[in-house]
Design a binder for these strands. Structure first.
Length: 204
DNA sequence: CGGAAGATCCACT
DNA sequence: GTGGATCTTCCGA
């Protein structure tokens, strides 16, 4: 099935904003323990690198933690935050530019039962809240640091052609949780599928 | 070497 | 809408 064909690496070697918008509707596929978990991406955020105060690569900051953020576009950048959550990014652009797209939310396509099980400390599983946020999404998909630096065009973690979204279905707005980033906090780099119930709040 | 912050989530009011 | 959990990472002293 062509929807399962991975996006080529060239897809990612573009500005983060363009990649982010074009990632909506695509399928995030994780093959683990002989099972295939598939999410259709409905919300993403672009981070522009050095000029972007909200980016982990702001001002060219380079540490052991964010090293994979400087890999060439098409790699995964996975980091640990708030002492308990993993977040997944797709690196964009050329090597050393630090651009990336934060994968924020998706709706289940395949393997939903396993995703619910992965989200085991949810008091009562609610299908609509399976992967509506970057931390929840990684929980449901079983994504952690072991995938940091992985190339996203191959198993076990890849993004495939999926079901691209029409221009009219795309909503944009300011990014979440980056109030510290001064003027950059207002840049409209958050993209979502208009009206999709799996998009995290506040609604786009 | 210590303190503070953090691209979040959950429970509760 | 508010506050607590929880701990790695980073920067300044």
């Amino acid at each position: 099935m062509s929807r399962f064909r991975p996006l080529p690496i060239s897809f990612y070697r573009r500005p983060a904003g363009d990649v982010a918008r074009d990632l909506l509707g695509r399928w995030l596929v994780h093959e683990v323990d002989g099972e295939r978990l598939v999410l259709r991406l409905v919300e993403v955020e672009a981070y522009l690198g050095a000029p972007d105060r909200a980016s982990h690569a702001w001002g060219g900051r380079r540490t052991a933690r964010n090293e994979s953020l400087y890999l060439p576009g098409g790699h995964a950048y996975v980091y640990f935050i708030y002492g308990m959550h993993w977040c997944l990014n797709a690196v964009t652009g050329d090597r050393d530019t630090g651009g990336a797209v934060l994968i924020r939310a998706g709706e289940p396509v395949e393997g939903e039962e396993r995703m619910v099980a992965n989200r085991r400390w949810l008091k009562k599983p609610r299908p609509g809240d399976l992967a509506g946020g970057p931390g929840k999404l990684c929980q449901a998909m079983g994504i952690d640091r072991s995938l940091d630096g992985h190339l996203l065009d191959r198993s076990p973690l890849m993004i495939t052609r999926g079901e691209p979204v029409e221009e009219g279905e795309v909503a944009a707005g300011p990014r979440i949780g980056v109030d510290y980033a001064a003027e950059a906090a207002a840049w409209p780099l958050r993209f979502g599928v208009r009206g999709n119930p799996h998009v995290s709040r506040p609604r786009l």
